[in-house]
Simulated scan of single mutants.
Amino acid sequence: MTRQQFAVKVAAVRRRSLQGFTLIEVMIVVAVIGILAGLAVPSYNDYIRRGQLPEAFNALSEYRVKMEQYYQDNRNYGGTACASAASANGWNTFPTTIKYFTFTCALDTATGDTAKQSYTITATGGLSKAVGHVYTINERGERKTTKFKNATVDQGCWLTSGAVC
């Protein structure tokens, strides 16, 4: 091979390398990005949802403690509404919405109760990824999940990641 032939081959290789990507190469990259996004977006959404659920758990626990304190002072959980005495006006504004959940309280929820000796506080998801989640707690401290990821369930715990306690 002469020097001139070698120079022609080197120039041809340089021209090919300067032409850019082929359509097949671009399509492969787009497909790989699509597959990665298809896996990452649902995982990220689930991560965000799980981060919003503790708001309900913390507030339900806090409301339960306040209801028990109210009971210690009044020997019932309320008259016409949960914690209805003036002493509880700072916190008993049911229904109330924090950020992702709305909280309601109902009296006389135990079977046969007519003396205001039972209650159920319910947290209902109303914003962002918390929509479709409903959690409850009662005077016995029983935690329940009645709706999880928009599906009706009946679990004796507060579900966060799976449909089983």
Rank of each mutant, 00 (worst) to 15 (best):
S118D: 04
W158D: 01
K147A: 12
S128K: 15
L127C: 09
V134H: 02
Q117T: 10
K129Y: 15
S128R: 13
S118V: 07
G126P: 02
K149D: 10
V153I: 05
G141D: 03
A115S: 14
R143P: 08
L127P: 09
T152V: 13
N138Y: 01
Q155V: 15
G141N: 09
I121D: 02
T114G: 05
G126Q: 10
Y119A: 06
K129Q: 15
T114E: 10
S128Y: 11
T136Y: 03
G112N: 14
S128C: 11
I137K: 01
V153W: 02
A130K: 03
T111P: 09
H133S: 10
F148L: 04
G125D: 01
T160R: 12
K147S: 15
T111F: 12
N150Q: 13
V153E: 00
H133G: 04
G141R: 05
V134K: 06
T114Y: 02
A130Q: 01
L127T: 14
Y119P: 06
I137N: 03
R143W: 11
T120I: 08
T152K: 12
G132H: 00
N138W: 06
D154W: 11
T146H: 03
S118W: 00
Y135L: 05
A130E: 05
E142D: 15
T136A: 03
D113M: 01
S118T: 05
T114F: 04
Y135R: 02
G132E: 01
D113H: 07
E139N: 13
Q155G: 02
T111R: 13
A151R: 14
E142P: 09
A151F: 13
V153F: 05
C157G: 00
G112R: 08
T124M: 05
V153N: 06
A130F: 00
T152L: 11
Q155H: 10
D154P: 08
G156S: 14
F148K: 00
A123L: 03
C157V: 06
I137Y: 01
